[in-house]
Nucleic acid binder design. Structure first.
Lengths: 333, 333
DNA sequence: ATGAAAGCGCTAACAG
DNA sequence: CTGTTAGCGCTTTCAT
């Protein structure tokens, strides 16, 4: 090793200067440090990982970064893990469990100390891989009866249920539901759960089940808005539409107003999810607010606690959600 | 190695089955593959990296993921690098060159095959580290005279210059400039370049230099909006404000309208940058559109080309920008 | 307080 | 087509 030679010591001493400087004589330490600085030596963590069976790397798997809730989540993970000196290896699954499996297989090769996944929908092979690797796992963005290991999220069924309850309390009775496609729901059971929550609240209230319309791309604001506006035009008896996410909700508000509809007087709109755009359209979108960055932070903290051998009081963390009432619906009385 | 034993072959044969299956007899290959599947074997890439001096990892360094231009950029990098089977190690510098240096030092330990940085402002130590590591580098989001290695971006001075030129062509003469703070500009020379472009265009037109007002947090929509609206109120002679970014611009439009101002009749607003919110406020924000995802994609492609030993026609890629005219300004004639 | 030996898992280079 | 040897850079263990 160049540094050792330069400083006239053994490789072991260099290693000590870097990892346990206290155990090295002051003079030696200085000599080695000087060599490190001059040569711009950066310890090879691949060798380290190999030897210590600890990589200092955490894997984060999200569906996409195009939706700000997930980029916020990653930011939260990044912030928290950096505090503990862990690096972040990122995977984007594009909402596909198969792609997720492929990515996890590749990422596991780097021997991450922990893995943070989005959601609870994974292939059987993914579960097997994770178990074989016996790596700590946190599932984010949903709370279910059964988790691979740990979890940080909230009740997605409840989110759909409560926003619908809120709409009903506002006095709306004739609902349209602008959903993502069944194909999307098949790959994203959080969406299914929210849908079910919506239907459940409506059933509970003994109201006519909502007329459903699917959008194509659940992240396309303009396209979803057009579909929603067409739908409203074709269903003149509705007094409110519930949108499966905030992108659709915002698109719907914008396009409806473009076409001369009054929101909420003629048609109320609510969404699920609260990217900053939801507060900025006119009128603002009534919606369910999630806490993306906090979910990420908590997930990373939970994982890091485990890695540091700290006791974990609860492996399942419910961070909740919040109904945010804005101008796109009348206030509940 | 467990797999080798299980299949009754040597470790080398297992390695060949995984990396060059063509060079192994059909029967052997099947036997080994079966053992791999049963045992859920995942090759240790740390050992691989150590031996081959190639990690299959790319580092991406962005200031933050809270701004969608950078999460889009990371998405672009992720998409492109996944095609080549490279994994993404992510760093968030929080706009601090010192933090960037610290992160790069840590990340270099993983022996990335390439590094993608945001901007051209790096500490001397960072440059030294990168040079010593002799790792390919792409700098994104700006084109300068001199780059560490490769670059994908656009002319930031030009962006400020052209949007201002556009405003002048619209007939505006009395400008306010809502800028990020000098401290921010000190850490983000792209902001400085855009500012300079704005001033240059105004000087060229022989118009009174703009009155400048700084915001505190350049990513805080509501706070920036209030500051901008107060500023407009206190400077009644202005006919237009130029905002240093689209967050400020959107906040300004929302808050000005809240306070009863007519945009653009009483005060026009333009911004720089085009997150989806810019198109969604009423009126839409006239702004300079950048191509975050494309910048990321191109940066990764450039890097991967280099890694694959392909010839690189131009190490400096200018992806340009686009003036997008919306309702917050009158149309230029 | 420091060093020497060994081995983590993998593959390049060379047998056979 | 398959196996053997050696070594990538580091740290654990044991000696000094």
């Amino acid at each position: 090793m160049a540094v050792a030679k330069h400083a006239g010591v053994s490789a072991m001493t260099v290693s000590r200067v870097i990892n346990q400087p206290g155990k090295v004589a002051e003079a030696t330490r200085k000599k080695v440090q000087a060599a490190v600085d001059i040569l711009g030596y950066v310890p090879n963590l691949a060798a380290n990982t190999l030897r210590r069976e600890r990589s200092g790397v955490i894997v984060a798997m999200v569906p996409t970064l195009e939706n700000s809730v997930f980029s916020d989540t990653v930011q939260g993970i990044s912030n928290a893990s950096e505090l503990e000196g862990c690096q972040l290896l990122l995977g984007c699954s594009s909402y596909s469990p198969e792609r997720e499996e492929k990515l996890i297989r590749a990422l596991l090769g780097h021997r991450p100390d922990g893995i943070i996944l989005t959601g609870t929908l994974h292939t059987a092979e993914t579960r097997k891989l994770l178990e074989t690797a016996s790596v700590p796992v946190v599932e984010m963005w949903d709370i279910a009866a059964d988790h691979i290991d740990m979890a940080v999220g909230f009740d997605n069924h409840g989110a759909g249920y409560e926003i619908t309850e809120h709409m009903i309390a506002c006095g709306y009775k004739a609902f349209g539901y602008i959903a993502t496609s069944p194909e999307h729901e098949a790959h994203e059971n959080r969406a299914t759960k929210r849908s079910n929550g919506i239907y459940a609240a409506i059933a509970k209230a003994n109201i006519t089940p909502p007329v459903r319309q699917n959008v194509r791309d659940p992240l396309d604001i303009a396209g979803s808005g057009k579909i929603a506006a067409d739908f409203v035009t074709q269903n003149p008896d509705l007094d409110a539409i519930i949108c499966a996410n905030e992108i659709i909700g915002v698109g719907a508000i914008a396009e409806l107003r473009n076409r001369g509809w009054q929101v909420p007087e003629q048609i109320a709109v609510c969404g699920i999810g609260d990217a900053n755009i939801a507060a900025l359209v006119t009128p603002g979108l009534t919606t369910v607010q999630f806490h993306g960055q906090e979910i990420g932070k908590r997930a990373a903290e939970l994982l890091l606690k485990r890695l540091n051998g700290q006791p974990i009081a609860d492996k399942k963390l419910n961070v909740g959600f919040k109904i945010v009432c804005r101008g796109s619906t009348t206030k509940a009385n």
